[in-house]
Every structure is written in C-alpha cells, then in structure tokens.
Write a protein that binds this DNA or RNA. Structure first.
Lengths: 225, 225
DNA sequence: AGCTAAGGTTAATAAACCCTTAATGCTAGG
DNA sequence: CCTAGCATTAAGGGTTTATTAACCTTAGCT
C-alpha cells in the first residue's frame, strides 16, 4: 500500500516542523506550505488524502483556501481539517460553511494529532459511503449526520444498527460473514453471541425493508437493493 | 473590474493609516477622513461601495454621520459598517437603528478586518440576504460581540455556552463527537468530565429551544434547525 | 482586600435508550 | 422428518444521557 499523503498548511514554521516530523514518523508522506496559495498549488500537484489547514494565516486564510479547494474538481472531495487556535479570536473560526471535515484545536500534542489524523483517514478509506449521489436503491447514508434516508424519509438509527448498515451497504451484493461483521462493527475484543447480529439485522429489515437484506445460510448476510 | 471604493472615517490618524494601508494592499481604493463632516463630503464626491465609520468621534459622530448618509438619495443604499471599541458602552448603540450594515469591533487584526470587508462587499454584490435576516433557523450568532439573537431577541450567552453553540452551528446537521467538542471548546490540555458537556447542552436547549439540539447516543450532539 | 454575583464544574440521582440474551418458533436441506 | 441454522419476540441489564443542585472559581465593585 502506498503511503498516504498529508498536506500541511500553516504560517508558523515551528508547527510545520513539529507536526510534519511526527506525521512522517508515522509513515505519512507530508507536504508543507506556509501560506494558502502555496498550499493550493501543492494540493493540485500532489493530490493529498488529507489537508490540514491553519485557519489564521496572512494572505489567503484557511477558510478561503478551503473554499478554493472545494471549487477544484479534482480536490473537492479531499479531506480537510482546520487547525484552530483557541486563544485566537475564536469568533473567526465558526459559522463558516466552507466544508471542513474536522476541526482540530491547537495547541495539540503531536501524538494526539496523529491519532486524529489516522481516525480521519480511516473513516474515509474503509467503508466508502456515498453521500452526495443517491444510489439507485434509494437508501442514502450520511455518516456525518448519523442519519439514513430511505426514499427521502429520514431515519435515525441507533449506533450499532447504523454501523452495521454502513458496513453492509459499503459493498452491496457482497456477503459479509458473521466473523467479519463482528470484527468491524463490534471490534475484535468484544465478545457477543451470534444471535446479536440476527437481532440487529431484523431491526434493519424492519426499518428499511425486508428485501434489502438477504441471508446466506451458513455464511452471512448481504445487502442487495 | 473597477476597484471597489472604501471610505474610512475615524478621528485617529493611526487607525486611518493602518486600516487604509491594508485595504489598499488588498486592492481597494481607499478614501479617508478624520471627522464626520469631511467623511460626508468625500462620500458624496466619490460614491464609495462601503463606509467604515468610527462611532466615537468629536463633532459629528458615527451615528449622526450614518443618518446623514442615509438621508442622501445617492448614498442611502451604501454599505455602512460601524467601528466600535469593544469596551465601549454597547447600550449606546444597542437599540440603535440608523441603518448600519455591520458592526466591527476594535481592536481588530488587519487581516480579519480585510476579510470582513470583503465579506460585506461580496454579500452585497452577489446575492443579498443574510446576517441580519438570518439563516433559516432564526438563530443569529454575532461572534464579534459575543451575542446571539433568537428570533430577533438578543441573548447574552456565557463564554462556554457561546463557543459550544458557535461550534455546533458552524456545521448544522453535522454530529460533533464529545471528543471534538472538548478539543475545540475546552482545548486539548484541559480535562473536564463528560457531564460538563451535557450541562452546557442543557443550558443551550433551555435558552434556544430543545428541538435544535439533537443527541446521537454514543456519538455526540448536533445542531439541527 | 472583602463582597457579591455569575460562570463553570462536578456529583448524585433519575430517566431514557440501546444492546444482549434467552426462549421459542420457523425453514431449508439432507 | 430431523436438525442445524436462522427468525422473532420480549424482557433484563447495562450504558449513556438528562437534570438538578451544590460547590468552586473568577470578575467586577466598593
């Protein structure tokens, strides 16, 4: 697997060095820029998986940079996280709708930041759920809002149901073994009985329609529109 | 496209120089006056797109100047923003309705001011609406003055409540995890219990309406108009 | 400094909700 | 028609959140 690319944009060289060093140590490929314009250029050239943007920068600030990124067809879906300084005028950072995926408050301990970065990338690499385009089956999953739409009707699913659904729909038609389901939704160190899965499947069937969830006896379950 | 014209009126020469310089650097055509009367005259001669008015000035103050501008047929639609000192007595300008389009609190960092100015001009060039008229949910947040309006009624929220609200409303509908909330409102090195968030959420619900804040169990909270 | 009031945090209890399991019924394939 | 595997239901237990009130800290005033 290729290294994942992170673009880091901040006007303080210290920050670039510190965070950059720590991210590289963790196996990321890191690009740095100390202003929005250079950041944009680097982003266009290298197609990063994640952009960490300082909000407050001279010249083009983080929000402006974010907007420009979102305007670029090749980059509009890149992950963007804002670095926000809490001691700075907080008023400037909120209320914008530039399309950030996360906020990360400074100051932050390097290892905390690294784990946030990993979490962000994991969220997006694992189960790739389309939010924008409504798939043909009429079920849309919005992970950001933790909300599911069934033919336009909004449903609020509990966490486990939501995650199970997200898993199954991440590869429609594919059979997920009970083992796989347990590992992904419950985690490897949690021990629950097999019936637990059944019950959650049933709830999904109840809420989203029986026909969408097929049982493959002795193997597992699959989502099929 | 022609340069956009900004008229700057303040009795302090330092301010005129500093702000004027920064606006010019960003490509605006800047006129300055150090009192209301000269400001009016300049406005009539040059037809600026935006007037930045200091509230406190000897002689004709900002409010008076503003009224006169609004009385002038050629200028009644010009954008006007007041420069107000943060520690000034707001009661003077609170119920004031001379027709300002924005308040900008001093002291303000030049780059912040520039982006405010741009936002103002952008607002007026393209579409209209907003800020006063508010997003659809009827809750307006004035981060500059740490004040919130709920359906036109002014609320003074304490700092933590305000920042929590600002965070949640910065991306309506989106779920913020407790972790993210803590990082952004409290900071990464402050340690507080989870119940603290609950309590602040409750206060917001009390003041702004229960329905606007939704709990996503096991995940976090979201603001939803 | 001392006083007062407001903001912020926590503890404690109650309530809501979700997860899990047990118990029982069902179905398909041998 | 027997059995392994799945479906269904409801209840219990446990976890997460709501709510309230007390406590501590801080800011503003005198």
């Amino acid at each position: 697997m290729n290294k994942q690319k992170v673009l880091l944009v901040d006007d303080e060289q210290d920050i670039l060095d510190l965070i950059g060093f720590n991210l590289e140590k963790e196996g990321f490929e890191v690009f740095t820029a100390n202003n929005g314009r250079d950041g944009l250029e680097l982003a266009r050239k290298n197609n990063p998986d994640l952009v960490l943007l300082d909000v407050m920068m001279p010249g083009m600030d983080g929000m402006e940079t974010c907007r420009e990124l979102r305007d670029d067809d090749n980059l509009k879906n890149v992950l963007i996280a804002f670095l926000t300084a809490r001691n700075e005028d907080y008023s400037q950072i909120a209320g914008f709708d530039a399309g950030a995926d996360d906020y990360i408050a400074k100051p932050i301990k390097p290892r905390v930041l690294v784990s946030r970065v990993k979490a962000l990338l994991r969220r997006n690499s694992g189960a790739e759920i389309e939010v924008k385009e409504a798939p043909s089956h009429g079920i849309v999953i919005d992970k950001e809002r933790y909300v599911v739409f069934k033919e336009g009707v909004q449903l609020n699913l509990p966490k486990k149901e939501f995650e199970l659904l997200a898993l199954l729909t991440s590869a429609p038609g594919r059979v997920f073994t009970r083992e796989t389901i347990l590992a992904n939704v419950w985690g490897n160190d949690v021990i629950v009985g097999d019936r637990t899965i059944d019950v959650h499947i049933r709830k999904l069937r109840e809420k989203l329609g029986d026909d969408n969830f097929k049982t493959v006896k002795g193997v597992g379950y699959k989502f099929e529109p």
